[in-house]
Design a protein around this nucleic acid. Structure first.
Length: 576
RNA sequence: CUUCGAGUAGCUCAGUGGAUAGAGCACCGGGUUGCGAACCCGGAGAUCGCUGGUUCGAGUCCAGCCUUGAAGACCA
């Protein structure tokens, strides 16, 4: 519970108190935004259930609760409706006061919940290759969650759990040695081509394959020369990632890098510890933790392998080492794993083992923030026309190119440099928003036309709403009184103020549910309410206190859109 | 076979056990001597996969089935 409640928290607390006063102490109020305008602004749904549990007449209980409900200065109308709803209409003065308070607050009056240390594991590309579309969702969902949690005052520790270890790096390093010996025209700028040629060598030449395997052994054995070459390869690959991160505008840096290799030294200790605790046992030569928790109807316990027959370790072991590190070293109270939903079973098992082994204390929250796969229009995994993976850098370039063409249509008179800048914000914003605005658990049909339509519920619609306000503020010039009182007369003004008052609840919901699309829905509604206000209520043409008040509503709306889009990693523009 | 997702308008998607299931796109019809029309307003369009159950109330919870995707001992 926040020190200062959000609007929804406040209403729930007040109705809950009234329920208690009416003889139902533990009955939840269940306050929600009203389903229809004629039901007011909020509706309390909890009375019917409370009455049922106590064999009372629900409408009678509702009138008792309403009589005891203290919303002085907050609501000016309460109605008992239907089988026992309490419909609440907030007072316009109260909405105006909330808007006024938000205007003078650096955080838009969004209350901060109790502070936590939150580890977010996201992006995690495989450094053997260039980033492809499969890395997009984790990267932008994780980035949005990081921004939201930081905004709420939490300490966020990003962990980029990159793939930088394993047999393929032996192959790549061996190929690097060979290419340098051959005279050095190796082109690491084309990482994908380099990987392809190395793989070709590996498949075609047994001698090379043997050298590659030997290189892995030497790398893992701590050979300094091999290690230096491996490190060089990683640096170059990481630079590629950083270019993509810069284009996307995500916050990840090298300081957040914590790849698989970082946990290498911990792995033997994990296995021996699990053995000592009687959890890991030998089975067919491998070290396995059997989990009764995952027994199906067939009665077989799931096998969680932590060490292979040949003594090698798996990602199962690495992930245990990582969770142990996040708990004991990083002191995380909450750990989020923004990883493909296909790994759901793996995470459920890993979390179970981590808890039983004591690597993650009971009070530490472990959450798999899963998401669906990107599909092509044919419903199959998204590929290029020729069947290859789509490089992320190319996808982003295309988005920007398409946006640039659109800006040229809409606003051909702007200088070219500015059109390029707008195209970046709009193109990247469209890609991110198309992803973030969908429930992350469902599979995601990738479609250029849908994604880059720039119409309806898209980033450009929100960006456009922002530039409209920016235009008004520009024209108002110095005549804006930042202390002017907000007065809500027109229905469109009131509806806009109500929507503005819900910002905190939207942000809190995103942090709680790890669902960025809840913020998208909110911002789309806010932009829509602004557009209606814009049609109905002239700002610059109005006069005196009305004009000053409307300008204040504009200022708060633009600040909220800028802040909200910023939390999604989407930039706003003064002109577009 | 087991487990976990998903199935809502022609398409892409919302929908915290509540009142008449909502948007956008596409389609049809309106709106600019108004602050940016990348906009606004209206219309049409849905047996919420199927069948039962739980209850004052089910798209939402439970069971079974259908379709689809994924995972399920030595890749990650």
């Amino acid at each position: 519970m926040s020190a200062e409640p959000t609007l929804l928290e406040l209403l729930n607390a007040r109705v809950g108190a009234a329920l208690a006063a009416a003889g139902c102490p533990d009955a939840p109020a269940i306050v929600q935004p009203a389903g229809r305008p004629e039901f007011g602004d909020y509706q309390a749904n909890g009375i019917m259930a409370a009455a049922k549990a106590r064999k009372m007449n629900p409408r009678q209980l509702a009138s008792e609760v309403a009589a005891k409900l203290d919303l002085a200065g907050i609501a000016d109308k309460l109605e008992i409706a239907g089988p026992g709803f309490i419909n609440i209409t907030l007072s316009s003065d109260y909405l105006a006061a909330r808007a006024q308070a938000a205007l003078t607050s650096a955080t838009l009056a969004v209350p901060q919940p109790p502070q936590q240390t939150v580890v977010i594991d996201y992006s995690a590309p495989n450094l053997a290759k260039e980033m492809h579309v499969g890395h997009l969702r984790s990267t932008i969902i994780g980035d949005a969650l990081a921004r939201v949690l930081r905004f709420l005052g939490h300490t966020v520790i990003a962990q980029n759990h990159v793939g930088d270890w394993g047999t393929q790096f032996g192959m790549l390093t061996a190929y690097l040695i060979e290419a340098e010996q051959a005279g050095g025209e190796l082109d690491l700028n084309d990482l994908e081509g380099f990987y392809r040629r190395a793989k070709q060598r590996f498949d075609d030449d047994d001698a090379f394959a043997d050298r590659a395997r030997d290189t892995v052994v030497r790398l893992q054995g701590g050979d300094a020369q091999i290690h230096a070459l491996w490190q060089r390869f990683l640096d170059i690959s990481m630079s590629h990632c950083e270019e993509v991160y810069a284009t996307l505008g995500v916050l990840l840096t090298r300081a957040d890098l914590k790849g698989e290799s970082a946990y290498n030294a911990m792995l033997p200790g994990i296995v021996s510890d699990l053995q000592a605790k009687g959890m890991a046992v030998e089975s067919d030569g491998a070290q396995v933790v059997f989990l009764d928790e995952f027994k199906g109807k067939d009665g077989e316990a799931a096998a969680y392998i932590v060490q292979k027959q040949d003594g090698g370790y798996l990602y199962a072991t690495t992930d245990l080492a990582a969770v142990r590190h996040r708990a004991s070293e990083l002191k995380a109270q909450r750990a989020l794993y923004v990883v493909d939903a296909r790994q759901s079973l793996h995470f459920q098992q890993m979390f179970t083992v981590a808890r039983k082994a004591g690597y993650a204390p009971a009070e530490m929250s472990l959450e798999h923030v899963g998401f669906g796969v990107m599909l092509g229009e044919d419903g199959k995994p998204f590929k290029t026309r020729s069947g290859g993976t789509v490089k992320l850098a190319e996808l982003l370039d295309e988005a920007i190119t398409r946006a640039f063409a659109l800006v040229g249509e809409k606003n051909p008179d702007l200088p070219e440099a500015q059109r390029h800048e707008i195209a970046r914000a709009v193109g990247i914003g469209a890609v991110k928003y198309a992803d973030l605005s969908k429930n992350r658990m469902s599979d995601y049909v990738f479609n250029w036309d849908t994604m880059l339509a720039f119409e309806g519920n898209t980033a450009p619609y929100l960006q456009y709403a922002y530039t409209r306000i920016a235009g008004i503020e520009r024209r108002a010039e110095g005549a804006i009184d930042a202390n002017a009182p907000i007065v809500l007369h027109d229905e469109a003004e009131r509806t806009l103020a109500l929507e503005l008052a819900r910002f905190a609840d939207a942000v809190h919901a995103v942090a709680r549910e790890t669902q960025p699309h809840l913020l998208c829905i909110y911002l789309y509604q806010l932009a829509g309410q602004f557009m209606r206000f814009y049609e109905a209520c002239p700002v610059l043409k109005s006069e005196g206190t009305v004009r000053a008040s409307r300008l204040q509503l504009c200022r708060l709306t633009s600040a909220t859109l800028r802040s909200g889009l910023g939390l999604l990693g989407i930039t706003t523009l003064e002109t577009m």
